[in-house]
């Protein structure tokens, strides 16, 4: 709670011209904090600074008087933080993820056995514990699904989860697959047009998909041709609209 309050007070402080001395002290404290933050980032590896930076810039523009103090503070922070970006840069060299060969093998099989252009993209999602991820073109999805499960080198028999996401430009279903013996993983994304979202059902391939796809149909409005029993699952049968869509407007916004 108190953290949020602190956030709120920040922009007010620079607007007060009479407290320059206090401002300077505050700026110095902020610089120290920024340095600590950068040091923490170097240790943690992640970079929330990207999110913090535009905010800081916006404040700089707004508070002209504080600019000088802030710039000085920044300079003070840089020698300390200057080492951090350099220290953070070396990690990229071991860039090829340990999962890259796994992903390449899967992508190669799909491209050679389903269609040369069956994949829109294939990458390792490092943020998700190095999850090999492929984006399959909508029209090639069903054949790819069958291949993923049945091909002896792939054999992704276990579908652990299906998520639906509304990206506003398109809808997407994400299938998280596992090969139980080797514990290999794969995330498969299938995109669908937002105005008429259709994705071939994976239920004939993995029985798990059944209710998961019903849930996506119910909450996001994606239809799954080939699904044995595509009905709403969470909302009542006469519900209008698909609540998880970003442009969904609830009847009563208070609820």
């Amino acid at each position: 709670m108190s953290e949020e309050k602190d956030e709120g007070q920040k922009p007010e402080a620079p607007a007060d011209p009479e407290r320059e001395a206090k401002l300077k002290a505050a700026a110095e404290a902020r610089a120290a904090r920024a340095a600590a933050k950068e040091a923490a980032n170097a240790a943690g590896g992640a970079a929330p600074e990207a999110a913090a930076d535009p905010e800081r810039e916006a404040k700089l523009k707004a508070a002209a008087e504080a600019r000088a103090a802030r710039a000085a503070a920044k300079e003070a922070a840089n020698p300390a933080g200057g080492a951090a970006p350099e220290a953070a840069e070396p990690p990229p060299p071991p860039e090829p993820s340990p999962k890259q060969p796994e992903l390449d093998a899967v992508a190669l099989l799909i491209r050679s056995l389903v269609h040369v252009e069956a994949l829109e993209d294939a990458y390792v999602n490092e943020m998700s514990q190095h999850m090999p991820t492929i984006i399959v073109k909508n029209e090639h999805w069903l054949r790819t699904a069958e291949l993923l499960k049945q091909h002896e080198e792939l054999h992704f028999t276990y579908l652990r989860n299906v998520s639906g996401v509304d990206y506003e430009t398109h809808l997407e279903a994400v299938y998280h697959l596992v090969h139980l013996e080797s514990r290999r993983e794969l995330a498969v994304k299938v995109k669908a047009d937002r105005s008429d979202p259709v994705i071939a059902s994976a239920t004939p391939v993995w029985a798990t998909a059944n209710w998961n796809e019903r849930e996506i149909y119910d909450l996001l409005g994606v239809t799954f041709p080939g699904h044995p029993d595509l009905r709403r699952i969470m909302m009542s049968d006469d519900w209008v609209g698909h609540p998880l869509r970003k442009d969904y407007e609830p009847l009563d916004s208070e609820v």
């Binding site: 992640a46 929330p48 943020m127």
Partner: peptide
């Protein structure tokens, strides 16, 4: 603020 991207855990 988790950085832009996605993760399944």
């Amino acid at each position: 603020r988790p950085p832009a991207g996605e993760a399944y855990v």
